[in-house]
Design a protein around this nucleic acid. Structure first.
Lengths: 240, 240, 240, 240
DNA sequence: CATGAATGAGACTTCATTCAT
DNA sequence: AATGAATGAAGTCTCATTCAT
């Protein structure tokens, strides 16, 4: 699932090498998550991977690329989780709920630091790496976009707002909740995550629906009754 | 409104100096916004302010303090805008709308980079500066929290969710929209901002309301009709 | 008594100005003594003198010259104390005792820091200032040298060692004792100083005396007696 | 004998590296000795060692540590010379002479600047490095202190003065002589050193002895003889 | 005169990155 | 293929000193 992007002059390709790459990526993920991009040092990453600094640079052309790969891998995981686990036959709401819950779960799984890394460094910074990541970003939001788009087609999701805004409506609160947790250094328990995820699902799904879903049904009923009432009156007093 | 924190050995205090301070803060705001905290250099800030590096350090005790002041000033602006302009006599919805619109407007005014600065650097890092800024953060979210809290008391805002989550529900999408714009390097026009803000107000306010406002009325009607129906049937087929 | 050395471009010469100079010198003495040459800053000296940094430089052409003047003034004091108080009619030992005691007393008077300044900075450093101070050093050791030289002439002081070495024999222990105190941060009481000074006088004066003044005479006598004794025995018992 | 203290992030430890360490230490020793701690720059030390500044910092965590090591190594040398060469079976005077001679010799070996470095920087300042060096200082004076203490026990050294003062009595003149030479920029020849050392030994040892050991005995003898003489005369010429 | 203000020059230190072994 | 070692480039910060007002 991971994409082999630009590599260094002489990227080893042996069998063990793949393990090396994994080690480095794991170490990189840890350190970047803990310290952020700038504060992370290639020295520490190498040390945690149990190899020399020079070796890191023989597998990755630089700190930046390594970081990009770390983020990309993280995206891969989450994208994979989406594409694998999405209940294709479920209702729109079920799919939506799956996405939100999965998102929250994964975001917090690898420590909130990684989340911050993706959120901050993966965005703001000199988009040397962001270029590569744009596509990931698209694929990462795709499942939600699909659900929303299909929901709109089927009338379950409101169409009076740009899709882009609906996307922000969903991702925004999720990320905000996560940062709240990160900042406060509150370690969310599994249960808390689930609870919050469910609350988010409920409030967000409601917000996504056409402004009058149930309302429309009832309104329809009311309308029907009223019409019936009118027809009756029409027959009752044909001569008036 | 701004807080005079610890300054360097020889902080000039003359009349013209205030202009210098402003210049430096502006330059700092620009550079920090463009590059982020780490990538910003005191050299560039000095250059943009048209002064020597040493002068910067004679007005601010260091890079960190300068950044803290930049962020603090930004908070000051927005907090001031809130506290000054909030329609105290308006309805909860009007106040809510004011907050969202003001927020969006100011966020985008100083270039989207500043927004990113506050969002990223002002939060994540163990930056000692975040200490100073915690209070700002509180004051900055206070107006919204007040509106929400009062709304809950008066029954306009749902009480079945934690306030904290409602806060994320509001700030999350706003920030996400802004980042969307930042990332895409789309410069939002004034009109676009307003439009988006209005859309956000509508969808968010709806999401904040108790799950059944209008719905309740119609549901009542339907219930009445149904009851009438039942009563009729009771009379029609008394023996069954 | 103080010598007007090189001054800045425009050295004020008014009446008040002399007070200014005194203030600055006092402040300089304090700060240099407390921090040592390098750690002392012109800013702090100016602040303690209650004037602006620039003013310091209008009275002294630079940090180095100021320091030289501080040291020179200190020398002036001690030299003055010697030249004024030396008991001209006293015995060599009395004069010697006066010099040692005065030295110790003055060294510790202005805090041990000044002593360290003179001892360290006044010596080692780029002898830009040391040039000026060489003459002071000479005058400062002159009283002792005189006493020693006269002592030698009169036979009270040993002549079998270079004068230079005797000088070191006297000044060395004094300075060492002072540094011991400085290092250990032991604040010597007035009484302790006197006691130590007296001890030094005793041991040093003894060391300065001809190695065998009285001793040689006695030894000669003993030898003579013994020889006489032997001769007598030789005559008494010629057959043995 | 040298202590491996905290080193930088990546301190090379290879075989050749030890030569590098030596080079740097030598360069550091030279520069610190020439300029003193503050005036010495890492740039110059690097240059003299023929390496880049960064390399210096990869072997030593900072200027301070380097200086501490330089001084520590110097102490190691001298302490080692003491502990190795001290004639354990020699008389107190012989041991004393060895200490003085060795001291003088080593002090002047590495240029007198180093001596000044140890004397000035290694002492005065609140340099954190002085912490590490206190123990060295103790070990460095230990041999002399031992000789003095044992001398006191055996009656060869006077007990009417504090040991501390006797220590100053010995070290003081040695250091003073050295500084004299340093200041005057007189390069002492090997022969001069030996001569001066011998002179110091003689005068100091005499000063250390009980004030009247031989003298008292001789004086007593003379007194006895004189009394006998008087008694005789009294009997011989009773009528005169 | 005195000084507020500005700054040039440089110090120490850090790291990503390279290269010979 | 791996790495020990070296370093160029850069960054933050300090301070003695100058100059216009």
């Amino acid at each position: 699932m991971s994409t082999q992007t630009a590599t260094s002059r002489r990227t080893p390709t042996g069998v063990k090498s793949q393990q090396r790459v994994k080690d480095i990526l794991q170490a990189g993920r840890d350190v970047f998550a803990e310290k952020g991009y700038d504060a992370a040092t290639s020295a520490e990453i190498a040390q945690r991977a149990g190899i020399s600094e020079a070796t890191v640079f023989s597998y990755f052309s630089g700190k930046r690329e390594l970081c990009a790969r770390v983020i990309a891998d993280w995206y891969d995981e989450i994208i994979d989780a989406f594409e694998t686990g999405l209940p294709r036959d479920g209702s729109a709401r079920q799919q939506f709920a799956f996405i939100v819950r999965t998102h929250m779960r994964l975001m917090l799984m690898n420590g909130t630091g990684l989340c911050a890394l993706v959120l901050s460094e993966g965005r703001t910074k000199q988009h040397d790496l962001s270029d590569t990541l744009t596509e990931y970003q698209r694929r990462y939001t795709a499942p939600l976009m699909d659900v929303l788009a299909r929901g709109q087609t089927l009338g379950h999701v409101r169409t009076d707002m740009p899709l882009r805004l609906l996307r922000s409506l969903v991702f925004g609160p999720m990320e905000h909740v996560l940062w709240d947790a990160t900042l406060a250094k509150r370690r969310l328990s599994q249960a808390q995550i689930e609870t919050t995820a469910n609350e988010l699902v409920e409030v967000l799904w409601a917000a996504l629906q056409p402004p009058d879903a149930k309302l429309a049904a009832l309104a329809q009923f009311r309308q029907d009754v009223e019409e019936a009432s009118r027809r009756y009156e029409a027959r009752e007093k044909p001569t008036s």
